[in-house]
Amino acid sequence: MAEKYKVLYYVNQFFGQIGGEDKAGIEPMYKEETVGPALGFNGLISEEGEVIGTIICGDNYFNENKEEAMKFILDIVKKTNPDIVVTGPAFNAGRYGMACGEIAKAIVEQLNIPAVTGMYVENPGVDVCKGQVIIASTSDSAAGMRKALPVMANIVKKIVKGEELGLPEEEGYIPQGKRLTVFSDKRGSQRAVEMLLARLNDEPFETELPMPVFDKVNPAEAIKDLSKATIALVTSGGIVPKGNPDRIQSASAQKWGKYDVSEKDALGADYCTIHGGYDPVYANELPDRVAPLDMLKQYEKDGVIGKVYEYFYTTTGTGTSVGNAMKFGKEIGKELKEAGVDGVILTST
């Protein structure tokens, strides 16, 4: 049989059998043996893998001396070069969960070694690492250890062998928040009819698309003196210089563009739309119908506003993910803030 795969284990002072809360301040240490849950875990994978050692660190020490603790731990990982790292399970222990999550995430991101942990779904450590790390869903207390370990072992086996993980509920992990397109054995219309029938008969049903929840931002303070303010114009209407020099996508935009308009009175004939989501004829006749540079320049001339910011920012809104829209907003906002812009007009189609 091939060589066994190597697992490195991380636990806190309690599961590392050093002691309870009074020992939470101990510095990290490494033992070339299987301590606490690592022992049980080793038994579950012993046919094909082995736990090569256990890192133990006090929860308080980790959270208060993150840099030192992390350096020690990552050094051990580099030295021992495991195939995968397992942290926890942390159940609903907050500080332990944060440690398990941050360590696992750092190992994945910095060393490119896979990591698995286990937590109760409400543990604050879940949000720290769920995008990068597979987290087995456990009960809220250590009484769930006997159930948690086989689930984690099973996930570890699949990851090490490069097998694809199934659905979260099948494999027992907390969803990472990735919405993946897959094939169903029934077409969509059939599923809709069945869902409606279930509702009409007061039977249980499950939506395939839980409604999104949008967060809120506090309104920024108003501009005090418009006649001294610099105003920037931004659009998601896909208005670009003719020829689309930056090749901004007509739908599902992956980037934005900015163009110097300081010498222009209007967007006019040099611009057009590449937006794939609306009838382009009217915008192509006159792009200022989508991004009203003409009027802003007029108000600048009349002294109503101090200045129109020299760059005009643009992207395509249609089919563009909220994730990308947020990224664009962050990047554009940063530039505008740094340039000393006082207010922004954003037009959408």
Binding site: G177, K178, R179, A192, M195, R199, F214, S321
Partner: peptide, 21 residues
Amino acid sequence: SGRDGMSQPLTDTASEAVAVV
């Protein structure tokens, strides 16, 4: 939901929409 599937799936929302394919 974006190329990585991590984005919000719709541009508008209503709590009444409980059964969606």
